[in-house]
Amino acid sequence: PDDEWKERLREAEEKNNWKLFEELARKAGVSEEKIEEWKRRWS
Rank of each mutant, 00 (worst) to 15 (best):
16 N>V: 05
21 F>Y: 04
13 E>Y: 15
25 A>I: 05
9 L>M: 12
10 R>A: 08
18 W>Y: 03
11 E>G: 05
10 R>Q: 10
29 G>W: 00
2 D>I: 11
36 E>I: 06
22 E>T: 04
43 S>E: 10
2 D>P: 12
6 K>A: 14
21 F>S: 00
18 W>S: 00
40 R>W: 09
40 R>E: 07
22 E>D: 04
30 V>I: 14
36 E>R: 09
24 L>M: 10
6 K>R: 13
23 E>C: 15
43 S>C: 14
32 E>L: 06
8 R>W: 13
7 E>M: 09
15 K>W: 07
3 D>W: 12
2 D>C: 15
30 V>M: 15
12 A>D: 03
35 I>T: 00
40 R>T: 09
38 W>I: 08
25 A>P: 00
2 D>K: 09
1 P>D: 12
35 I>E: 00
20 L>S: 05
5 W>T: 05
35 I>Q: 00
12 A>T: 03
23 E>S: 07
42 W>I: 03
41 R>I: 13
10 R>L: 11
43 S>T: 12
10 R>W: 10
28 A>G: 05
31 S>D: 05
19 K>R: 12
28 A>S: 06
33 E>G: 05
14 E>C: 15
18 W>F: 04
7 E>Q: 13
27 K>D: 06
13 E>I: 15
4 E>N: 10
3 D>E: 13
31 S>L: 03
20 L>H: 09
10 R>T: 06
12 A>V: 05
36 E>D: 09
27 K>L: 13
17 N>G: 07
6 K>M: 14
40 R>C: 14
34 K>R: 11
24 L>R: 04
14 E>I: 14
43 S>N: 12
27 K>M: 14
6 K>Y: 15
42 W>N: 02
14 E>M: 14
30 V>Q: 02
15 K>R: 10
43 S>F: 15
7 E>F: 05
31 S>W: 01
2 D>A: 09
26 R>M: 03
31 S>R: 03
1 P>N: 10
6 K>L: 15
28 A>T: 02
27 K>C: 15
13 E>L: 15
40 R>N: 10
26 R>D: 00
26 R>K: 05
5 W>D: 04
4 E>H: 11
15 K>P: 03
22 E>M: 08
12 A>L: 10
4 E>F: 14
39 K>I: 09
4 E>W: 15
26 R>F: 03
41 R>Y: 12
1 P>R: 10
34 K>Q: 15
41 R>W: 15
11 E>M: 08
18 W>A: 01
33 E>I: 05
33 E>N: 06
15 K>T: 14
10 R>H: 08
14 E>G: 08
14 E>W: 10
25 A>Q: 01
41 R>L: 15
7 E>A: 11
17 N>H: 07
13 E>A: 15
27 K>Y: 07
30 V>L: 13
8 R>Q: 11
10 R>M: 10
39 K>R: 14
22 E>V: 11
27 K>H: 08
5 W>P: 03
25 A>Y: 02
33 E>H: 06
36 E>Y: 06
40 R>L: 10
25 A>E: 00
2 D>V: 10
8 R>Y: 11
28 A>K: 05
9 L>N: 03
23 E>V: 05
29 G>A: 01
4 E>K: 09
7 E>S: 09
41 R>K: 12
14 E>P: 04
14 E>L: 13
3 D>Q: 12
37 E>T: 02
31 S>M: 03
12 A>S: 05
34 K>G: 03
16 N>S: 07
31 S>Q: 04
4 E>S: 09
33 E>M: 05
28 A>L: 13
10 R>P: 03
35 I>G: 00
11 E>I: 07
25 A>M: 12
36 E>H: 05
28 A>R: 06
2 D>H: 09
29 G>R: 01
8 R>N: 06
15 K>L: 12
37 E>M: 05
37 E>R: 03
13 E>C: 15
21 F>G: 00
19 K>T: 12
29 G>M: 02
20 L>N: 05
23 E>G: 03
39 K>E: 02
10 R>E: 06
20 L>T: 06
27 K>S: 11
7 E>N: 11
7 E>P: 05
40 R>G: 07
31 S>K: 04
37 E>V: 02
11 E>W: 11
26 R>Q: 03
30 V>E: 01
23 E>K: 06
30 V>D: 00
33 E>T: 07
31 S>Y: 01
42 W>K: 02
21 F>I: 05
3 D>L: 10
25 A>S: 02
11 E>A: 09
32 E>W: 08
15 K>G: 11
26 R>L: 04
10 R>V: 06
16 N>F: 10
25 A>L: 15
13 E>G: 15
18 W>R: 01
26 R>E: 01
13 E>T: 13
21 F>A: 03
3 D>F: 11
24 L>A: 08
12 A>E: 04
33 E>Q: 09
26 R>N: 01
6 K>T: 13
17 N>T: 05
42 W>V: 02
18 W>Q: 01
11 E>D: 12
2 D>R: 09
24 L>C: 14
31 S>H: 03
3 D>Y: 10
4 E>M: 11
14 E>K: 13
27 K>W: 12
31 S>N: 05
35 I>R: 00
1 P>K: 09
3 D>I: 09
29 G>V: 00
13 E>S: 15
29 G>L: 02
27 K>A: 15
29 G>Q: 02
32 E>M: 06
6 K>F: 14
37 E>P: 00
15 K>C: 15
30 V>N: 01
13 E>V: 15
6 K>Q: 13
18 W>G: 01
25 A>N: 00
8 R>K: 12
12 A>W: 08
15 K>D: 09
18 W>L: 02
31 S>A: 07
31 S>P: 13
20 L>M: 10
9 L>S: 03
23 E>F: 12
16 N>R: 13
4 E>P: 06
42 W>C: 10
40 R>I: 07
30 V>F: 15
3 D>N: 10
37 E>W: 08
18 W>C: 07
15 K>V: 08
3 D>S: 11
11 E>N: 06
4 E>G: 10
21 F>W: 12
21 F>H: 01
39 K>M: 07
31 S>E: 04
39 K>P: 00
43 S>P: 09
4 E>D: 12
32 E>T: 05
36 E>F: 06
1 P>S: 12
20 L>V: 09
25 A>C: 13
34 K>W: 14
29 G>S: 01
19 K>F: 09
4 E>Q: 11
10 R>I: 08
9 L>H: 04
18 W>M: 04
17 N>C: 15
22 E>R: 03
5 W>Y: 05
35 I>S: 00
34 K>P: 00
34 K>S: 06
43 S>K: 13
24 L>N: 03
33 E>L: 04
16 N>Q: 11
4 E>L: 13
1 P>I: 14
6 K>G: 11
27 K>Q: 13
14 E>Q: 12
29 G>E: 01
13 E>N: 10
38 W>G: 00
5 W>N: 04
38 W>Y: 11
5 W>Q: 03
20 L>A: 11
24 L>I: 14
30 V>W: 15
35 I>L: 08
30 V>K: 01
8 R>S: 07
11 E>V: 05
29 G>I: 00
23 E>R: 04
43 S>Q: 14
17 N>D: 13
19 K>W: 08
13 E>Q: 15
9 L>P: 03
33 E>D: 10
32 E>Q: 08
17 N>S: 07
1 P>V: 13
6 K>V: 13
7 E>D: 11
41 R>N: 11
32 E>P: 10
40 R>Y: 07
6 K>W: 15
38 W>M: 10
14 E>H: 12
10 R>D: 05
29 G>F: 01
18 W>E: 00
6 K>S: 12
12 A>H: 05
28 A>F: 13
27 K>F: 08
31 S>F: 01
27 K>P: 00
19 K>D: 12
39 K>D: 00
5 W>I: 06
11 E>F: 06
30 V>G: 00
34 K>F: 12
5 W>E: 04
32 E>H: 04
8 R>E: 07
42 W>F: 13
37 E>G: 02
35 I>F: 02
29 G>H: 02
18 W>P: 01
31 S>I: 02
39 K>Y: 10
20 L>R: 08
27 K>N: 09
16 N>L: 09
32 E>R: 06
27 K>G: 07
6 K>H: 11
14 E>T: 09
14 E>R: 13
7 E>T: 08
16 N>K: 13
36 E>K: 07
5 W>L: 09
19 K>Q: 11
6 K>C: 15
31 S>T: 07
2 D>W: 14
32 E>K: 07
5 W>G: 02
7 E>K: 11
16 N>A: 07
8 R>A: 14
24 L>W: 15
9 L>Q: 03
21 F>K: 00
22 E>W: 12
42 W>P: 01
7 E>R: 11
23 E>L: 08
11 E>R: 07
9 L>Y: 08
8 R>P: 05
40 R>D: 06
18 W>I: 03
2 D>M: 10
34 K>N: 06
32 E>C: 14
17 N>W: 13
24 L>K: 03
13 E>H: 15
2 D>G: 11
12 A>K: 04
33 E>V: 07
1 P>L: 15
25 A>H: 01
9 L>A: 08
34 K>V: 14
9 L>W: 11
